[in-house]
Amino acid sequence: MNTTAPHPYVGMWVTADGHIRQELLANGRYDEARGNRQSAYTGSYSVTGNHIDYVDDTGFTATGDVRDGVLFHEHLVLYREDSAQPTAGAK
């Protein structure tokens, strides 16, 4: 029986307007939806401290940092789906 809790960053992260939804999976994979396009980007990620390194399945790389419970992923700002987030522009 595995009693190890998943990493605290595992779960769904969304932009304030809900257009981009990035799910960090417990197995080290991610799945990102953009608008109506499901699985627009998929790949693997690794976490070191508060820093996340992404490698898309096409070989594209990106980075992110979690600060004060907010994920800053390149030019995006994402919030935990289950946390309070800004509602301006939300659909």
Rank of each mutant, 00 (worst) to 15 (best):
N36R: 13
D68T: 02
H75I: 15
E74D: 15
R34V: 15
N50L: 01
R80M: 03
S44C: 09
P8E: 10
R34G: 11
S44W: 04
G49R: 04
Q38S: 13
V77L: 08
G59Q: 07
G28R: 01
T61C: 07
V66G: 03
H75C: 14
G64C: 00
H73P: 06
R21P: 09
M1E: 12
I20G: 02
H7Y: 05
G49V: 05
M12S: 15
Y41G: 14
A33E: 07
V55M: 09
H19E: 12
A88H: 11
N36C: 09
E74M: 10
L78G: 06
A62K: 00
P86S: 05
D57T: 13
P86A: 05
A33N: 11
A16T: 04
V14T: 11
R37G: 02
K91H: 14
L78Q: 09
R34A: 12
T48D: 15
P86W: 07
L24C: 01
S44E: 14
E74G: 05
A90R: 10
F72M: 12
Q22R: 03
S44G: 12
A62N: 07
E81P: 00
V55A: 06
R67Q: 09
G89Y: 03
H73K: 13
G59W: 05
V55W: 02
T87Y: 10
D31P: 01
Y9S: 03
Y79R: 06
T48I: 13
T87D: 13
H73F: 08
P86M: 04
R80D: 00
R67N: 10
E81I: 09
T15R: 09
D82L: 10
R29E: 14
I52Q: 01
L25I: 08
Y9F: 11
T15E: 15
M12W: 10
N27A: 10
D57I: 12
Q22W: 03
L76N: 13
V77R: 06
T3R: 13
M1R: 07
G64S: 02
I52L: 12
A40Y: 12
G69M: 08
I52P: 01
T87G: 15
E81Y: 12
Y79P: 01
R29G: 06
G64M: 00
G69Q: 07
H19T: 14
L71R: 00
L76K: 07
L78S: 09
